[in-house]
Design a protein around this nucleic acid. Structure first.
Lengths: 241, 241
DNA sequence: CGCCCTCTTGAATTAAGTCAAATAATGTGG
DNA sequence: CCACATTATTTGACTTAATTCAAGAGGGCG
């Protein structure tokens, strides 16, 4: 049956089926090149909330593309305390910091039911020699990550608490939008604690700020459901003293 | 004369002459491959203190390897305020965040008389297709930078002021050591202001901490000359509450 | 249904910032 | 090379943003 052939073709090009492949590593590859990339990518069963994609100090073998759900990335200090680096959304790659050295330099855990594509790194590099633009694209993604981390360093250390939280909300909003979701209304998959930790603030401060933002008519907050009421005020918070 | 031929060969392999090429992009390349890399690298006249290597939003064209001196990397916010990202030492690459997008995403300015190698990026990528390992090495360097930025984010947001400064001093010490300089005694090329800015602290706090570290017998501080008296205490500061 | 964990809220405390001012370096033009 | 202007650093006194401690409320999961 011709429908079978079509399906077979479809199965080969899972990336093209994937709603967010334009944000992901396959971006910019031709259909033929996608086939080759498809071949080396392993799709795993969905991860449940709390399951690890990889742990710090584990042997590095692959980078992972998040297909659905969300991931928390963090490192541990000498005392075993968690330091949240950031939250990943579909299309994002995790594990990039493990390429240098032979071990992952952070842990990645699912914040909700999530699925990832495993991209064995050695094979990816091999493929990079053949497929025009693949290495370049990986380098671009890494460049962007460096840039985003720079922003984070600058933001995190010098802004007051309210501006930091506003910035997190705004960034999440933008990222949801890029992925075709509502920019004004979304669900936080991470806990207040995770947000506080990432921003270097106390949980209580985050809690108070959510209340305050609500009183000021900036947000509507119901548990983990956020609605941005006044995005201008939100933006102003980030820019002002 | 044979000495002329030898000199000619030497001129071609400036990288091999460079004291820090093992920390830099050429690391791991064969002598022949180095020749090719040498060919595309432009060495410019030394930069004076305060001169820019590149500015934020300028068109991106090349990454730069610092050969001597030191560089401050920073971004500007909407109000035009500077946010120091970090300080670069010989062998470090700058401009990597400009690869994504076609503009530099930060500025880089010489903190003292410095010299850099300009590595046109398009040519570097071309060469990467021929020279085995070059792309991989660039990716490794970027991976390491991502990892270091993660450390910085974790550090910067959650440690008390004294631990942050201790961490900066310790990191500088390590980096001097890697470059063959004394780990225990060195010169700060950056101002107190730059350090404060990078750490998200007030200049006054940095000043007070230097005084305090001296009183506690951890450091000897004379203007910009630092001597680490008790590296154990310094390390303890970073790990303790 | 009830326990546990997350979140919220209030009150007291503190680390770090701001403001102010003196002192020390650095640079500039004559 | 000196005198003056400018900028960087230090120090003290006071203020404040955010933390810590304590306690209660709410939700979700077994």
């Amino acid at each position: 049956m011709s429908s079978q052939i079509v399906n077979l073709k479809k199965v080969q090009n899972i990336c093209e089926q994937c709603g967010i492949y334009r944000l992901c590593l396959p971006m910019g590859l031709s259909s033929g090149d996608l086939d080759q990339l498809d071949d080396i990518i392993k799709r795993s069963r969905p991860l449940k909330k709390g399951e690890y994609i990889f742990r710090e100090d584990e042997a590095f073998g692959a980078i992972y593309a998040l297909r659905s759900g969300s991931i928390k990335s963090f490192i541990l200090d000498e005392r075993g305390d968690e330091h949240v680096i950031g939250f990943k959304m579909p299309g994002d790659l995790v594990g990039l910091s493990g390429i240098s050295g032979s071990h992952y330099r952070n842990s990645a855990v699912a914040l909700e039911t999530s699925s990832v594509c495993e991209i064995p790194f050695t094979q990816l590099e091999e493929l990079g020699k053949e497929v025009q633009g693949l290495s370049h694209h990986l380098i671009e993604i890494m460049s962007k990550e460096i840039q985003e981390e720079h922003q984070k360093v600058a933001m995190c250390s010098k802004m007051p608490a309210d501006a930091r939280l506003a910035s997190v909300i705004q960034t999440l909003s933008q990222r949801f939008k890029e992925r075709g979701f509502s920019a004004s209304e979304f669900h936080l998959s991470m806990s207040r604690n995770d947000i506080a930790n990432m921003l270097g603030l106390a949980v209580e401060t985050i809690s108070r700020l959510f209340t305050q933002f609500q009183e000021q008519g900036i947000l509507s907050v119901d548990r983990k459901h956020i609605r941005i009421i006044d995005s201008q005020k939100l933006a102003d918070l980030i820019r002002m003293d």
